[in-house]
Amino acid sequence: MLTRRIIPCLDVKDNRVVKGVNFLNLRDAGDPVELGARYSDEGADELVFLDITATIHSRKTIVDLVRDVAENVFIPFTVGGGIQTVGQMDELLRSGAEKVSVNTAAVANPNLLAEAAQRFGNQCVVLAIDARRSKDRPDRWQVCVKAGSEPTDIDVVEWAVKGEQLGAGEILLTSMDADGTKAGYDNELNKAVTEAVNIPVIASGGAGSLDHLYDALIDGGADAVLMASITHFENYTITQMKEYLRDRGIPMNL
């Protein structure tokens, strides 16, 4: 049986892993290659590296980082942040990334998802969505772009469905409201999206305790859970998370 996945997320800035709250107030969390290798040894199912600066200068750094990680880590990892073209995706995949995630560029040019899927296969193409609960309609969420700084009037669930149709093979769904708060995932958001699409959904934003992970997988229907604060600052080990979930009846790779 396919197991559910535990995915530590490494937000990278100036070649360091950082973590903030609601996308702000960044704290240093270590060296990306060392941390990636440590999580792999501890049994992480996958890793996500996000270049949160995503400038022309950082693009070169992130390719070097992908090469370094790929020489030391033999589990799949996704790279995202500022990717705009199929050529950039190709470079990252050839450097050793298993998947690439796109966010702002896909909103600006949805056809990018289709082009990437036809070239690399849809299993390589992750649509990252930063979701913020709508102030006017609390049962809806709006897509935000440019590292969450720019809200759009695009509905998250509609965008997820469109992304799947275009060729995305997975959705990395981050609740901006929950991110870094350790107050739990937004499972209404997760449920709305997982019920609307047939591709895997990674729940992101808000993990603070072990039962939060369980709730995102069961109530939210997520295929995988992504976390940062609770692993980087050593609240829980990957093994603790997996054993807890396994003991509550969820298939895990242990």
Partner: peptide, 10 residues
């Protein structure tokens, strides 16, 4: 079923 088949399977 969810497609792609993505993740660790036995």
């Amino acid at each position: 079923r969810v497609i792609p088949h993505m993740g660790w399977n036995l």
